[in-house]
């Protein structure tokens, strides 16, 4: 099943289950329904699906108003870049609403992060964490079957407000089927593998790169712990620090283009609490921030990293044998 089809199925289940719900957005019930994301949505009698006018600032405020009135509101957004128009509502309105008891009202913005490249200078924003950090908003990214199921079923209609970011570049790909070893109670950190030689920690929508990395290491007989940090703020790093200290090797992958990275917070923690044998920090170089149509994908030299780790590990084994 494709990534978009899987998410669509989960949303349909949630929407069908919900009472007092309004789901709204541009073209969500017309045309291709956001490239299939909102295809065939059906709501219970009395609930609403609304194709809205193009007015993102107001649509964010409308979602908050509906939530304040005790209903479940979901704003399905074609493109995260458009959420820039709603920053006033995200910050100023939420700063008041957050002080109140949540009640039954729910508001979810599900936005497509256009990270498939070649869109041009303006449609290139993958800075999901920036939207969340600007007002301390709960946010979750989705890359695979396990996190999709966990996040959508626990968050889509839950009281309170959050943003869920999904990846345009993964839309038409077969969704990664992942088995989860553990999920943090706040769904900020998912662990998919436990290993001995390295700790791979993926931020934002970079888990697919981490899965490739883990596979390459396995080919060389090395096992790695694999984590995904799906939520930009705030994260309890204790489990991750514990694992890094066990393996002694950190491979951090963060695909955000922002200069304001949650992975920096982890690195500060690591600096104070971990002794590392090796570390590989894989992030975008500032010069990668090109403002013209561009492939926009991270280019990772897996062979180099796997080679270095294999050499280190084999060297360690030889020392142990001596």
């Amino acid at each position: 099943m494709k990534y978009v089809e899987y998410i669509n199925k989960l949303i349909k289940d949630e929407v069908l289950r919900a009472d007092r719900m309004v789901i709204f957005g541009q073209n969500i019930n017309a045309g291709s329904c956001l490239s299939g994301l909102t295809k065939n949505l059906k709501v219970k009698k009395g609930n609403l699906i609304i194709n809205t006018p193009n007015c993102e600032n107001s649509l964010v405020g409308i979602g908050f108003g509906a939530m304040m009135n005790g209903v479940s509101a979901a704003f399905m957004m074609k493109q995260q870049d458009f959420l820039l128009l709603g920053i006033d509502q995200l910050v100023n309105t939420y700063n008041i609403i957050r002080q109140r008891s949540a009640g039954e009202g729910s508001f979810t913005i599900m936005t497509i992060i256009v990270d498939n490249g070649y869109e041009g200078p303006q449609s290139r924003l993958n800075h999901f964490g920036d939207f969340c950090s600007i007002a301390g908003i709960q946010g979750f990214t989705i890359t695979n079957t396990a996190d999709a199921k966990e996040i959508i079923s626990s968050q889509f209609n839950a009281p309170g407000f959050r943003i869920i970011g999904i990846s345009q570049r993964l839309f038409k790909q077969e969704i990664m089927e992942m088995n989860v070893l553990s999920v943090s109670p706040d769904r900020s950190v998912f662990q998919y593998a436990q290993g001995k030689q390295a700790t791979i920690i993926c931020f934002n929508l970079s888990l697919p790169y981490g899965v490739v990395m883990a596979g390459r290491l396995k080919e060389k007989g090395l096992s790695a712990s694999l984590f995904s940090v799906n939520s930009p703020v705030p994260v309890n790093w204790d489990e991750l620090v514990h694992d890094i200290n066990k393996t002694g090797t950190l491979i951090l992958i963060d695909d955000l283009k922002s200069r304001n990275l949650a992975s920096d917070n982890l690195l500060v923690k690591v600096l104070g609490h971990c002794t590392l044998k090796q570390k590989f920090i894989i992030r975008r170089r500032p010069e990668e921030n090109v403002f013209s149509p561009h492939h926009d994908q991270m280019v990772i030299d897996y062979d180099h990293i796997v080679g270095q780790l294999a050499t280190e590990w084999q060297g360690g084994l030889k020392s142990a044998e001596i």
């Binding site: 007092r20 719900m21 309004v22 009395g46 609930n47 609403l48 600032n57 107001s58 649509l59 964010v60 405020g61 409308i62 979602g63 908050f64 108003g65 509906a66 939530m67 304040m68 009135n69 005790g70 209903v71 509101a73 006033d88 509502q89 100023n92 309105t93 008041i96 009202g105």
Partner: peptide, 21 residues
């Protein structure tokens, strides 16, 4: 709201809530 124009969409959302309910 102390932000000019900010309260209008929130009010529209409240009205939408009344319709749903």
């Amino acid at each position: 709201s102390s932000i000019l124009g900010n309260n209008l969409p929130v009010a529209a959302g409240l009205s939408l809530g009344n319709k749903v309910k």
